[in-house]
């Protein structure tokens, strides 16, 4: 019961902190002081109190987009374990629901973008679905490999096994899967080198360009959903990359929070030292992630 409460509190409160950490790391690399770590929270608070402007060509679909994608991401967050502690909701087959909830969020985000009738947002939506198509098989290959190794069809079962019992025998496939998932994590969360969350040059963006027309509380919901997605997929990467299995009780929670912050720092470092890829290169990198994941699967099946 306590664990469930902590899980829900963590997923509600912690995500924007990661954005703050990433921004701080990037600022340090650029030789600036950077905004306070809690800046994303302030921004969310500010957006929630603001008024909204709606485009005259939009309909209820535009307003539903951010809400549906936030609800779907929150639901998915209930099914992923956080650091050695099982998730509040877990059943055989939940990994499929987890993946498809993100597809639901993608559907509504892109449809809302097309509702504005702007060609720029159409571009962003087209890119989002294109890269989504290539990213989903990567996730599923990793899930098959984990399910086959662990014998579990639930995220908690499979991921707990990956961060526990699988380490001695399957370090190599786990590392490969971690790399593939990290690429997936960067793509899905629109980080450099795949997309730039800070640029406002519309032609080069994916996620940011889709939400150009949202304002006020709806934009706050988008920002929050994005940080939540970062958090949830980050937890997925960490479970494959780190052996949480040894950590029990409070140690598990503390080590999870610490490694989440470390992941954010790593993301910030990647963003600082890498340039953006050409858009045409992104499918190729995703194919590379696909090959890595397939290779890892091959090593586990063998």
């Amino acid at each position: 019961m306590i664990d469930t409460l902590i899980h829900i509190l963590l997923l509600l409160i912690m995500p924007p902190l990661l954005l703050g950490v990433i921004n701080r790391v990037k600022a340090v690399f650029a030789g600036r002081c950077g905004p306070p770590l809690l800046q994303p929270y302030f921004e969310l608070w500010r957006l929630l109190r603001k008024g909204s402007v709606f485009s005259s060509s939009t309909s209820w679909v535009f307003r539903a987009g951010p809400l549906v994608s936030l609800a779907a991401t929150l639901t998915a967050a209930l099914m992923i374990p956080f650091g050695g502690h099982g998730s509040p909701i877990s059943f055989a087959g939940d990994l499929l629901l987890f993946a498809y909830l993100f597809a639901l969020a993608r559907f509504f985000t892109t449809v809302a973008a097309l509702d504005t009738g702007s060609s720029f947002e159409g571009m962003g939506a087209a890119r989002e679905v294109t890269f989504g198509c290539l990213a989903e098989p990567v996730l599923f290959i990793v899930l098959v490999a984990l399910a086959r190794e662990s014998g579990f069809l639930s995220l908690t079962g499979a991921l707990t096994y990956a961060s526990g019992g699988m380490w001695p025998s399957g370090a190599a496939p786990l590392m490969l899967m971690a790399v593939a998932l990290f690429i997936l994590f960067l793509v899905e969360n629109c980080r450099i080198p795949f997309d730039d969350p800070t640029t406002h040059l519309e032609l080069t963006m994916i996620h940011e360009v889709m939400v150009l027309d949202h304002s006020g509380p709806a934009f706050g919901a988008i920002l929050y959903a994005a940080s939540l997605k970062l958090f949830v997929l980050g937890a997925l990467v960490l479970h494959v990359a780190l052996p949480f299995g040894a950590m029990q009780g409070w140690l598990g929670w503390i080590s999870f929070i610490a490694s989440m912050v470390l992941l954010a720092i790593l993301t910030g470092v990647v963003e600082s030292v890498m340039a953006r890829l050409k858009l045409l290169k992104i499918p190729q990198v995703l194919l590379m992630a696909l090959s890595l994941a397939a290779f890892a699967l091959l090593l586990t099946v063998r």
């Binding site: 109190r49 603001k50 008024g51 909204s52 402007v53 709606f54 060509s57 150009l212 006020g216 509380p217």
Partner: peptide, 15 residues
């Protein structure tokens, strides 16, 4: 929230 804060209508942002 929409009811609490002012709400406007405008053209789609054409960049």
């Amino acid at each position: 929230m929409l009811r609490r804060a002012p709400c406007g209508t405008s053209e789609t942002w054409g960049c």
